[in-house]
Amino acid sequence: MQEDRNHSIEIAKIKEALQADIITGNSQTGQYVTGIYASDLMSDVLAYGKSGSILITGLNSVQAAISAYMAEFKGIVFIRSKIPDQDIRKFAEEKGLFILTTDTDMYETCVKIASIEGEVSVSTAAAALTKRAENVTTYSFSIDGQDFASAGMVSTQIKTILKSIGYNPLIIRRVAISTYEAEMNVVMHAKRAKVTLKASDQEIYIIIADEGKGIADIELAMQEGYSTATEEQRAMGFGAGMGLPNIRRNSDKMNIESKVNEGTTIETMFFVK
């Protein structure tokens, strides 16, 4: 194997770099490890691992501790917040293995340990790891105008997604109501619309862009009770003129743009905190 040089890293330094919790081996933090081996496959640990190393693994089973002991490792870092059970602790204590747990994943753990000895500069490591936080999920749906039978399907789908993400029930309720109203507007007044949902840990963002007759006077349309619904639509219980006001009332931010005979785009935003 290439570059199979010896390392020499103090356990305390590893603990610090990873902001790890120490589970067993409190007295060993002044000791040094001479190698690093990252794997979840224990047969490989025995085949490739070197005496005096530290094992980085996500395999939370006593098998990991046994393999580390057999390969004469000094200790184990359990990654991704895996907390070793009583059997592992007992075994480790008996055999003098130290155990750390960290919330970082295997790559991040490796990079952070590598930066201790300056193998990777701390700033390079930090830059490589900052990008990993951003999470936005995007969904698209479509609504057909005049399809009263399926009206409400899109808001139901959006609701289901938001529920399974686990947002606060109150914010989901507001999203559901305002999306349902917007969906009804499309069904009543437009040909079709595209709905986009973007959900992140900061905000929920919904865009409903329709092709249709558009709104001539937005200010007028925003008034409660104003409605251009037909008699038939009203008879079916639609078009009470509360749609747009309801959307505004339930969202944290609302933007509406419209061109007559082209269409209307409504953007709504809901802040998670």
Binding site: M1, Q2, I36, Y37, I56, C110, A114, V120, A128, K131
Partner: peptide, 18 residues
């Protein structure tokens, strides 16, 4: 790669991968 996962991780960061 003949390197271990740990060794390769360092190389990848050095190579400038984000």
């Amino acid at each position: 790669s003949p390197l271990s996962s740990f060794q390769l991780a360092s190389k990848l960061v050095e190579a400038g991968l984000k």
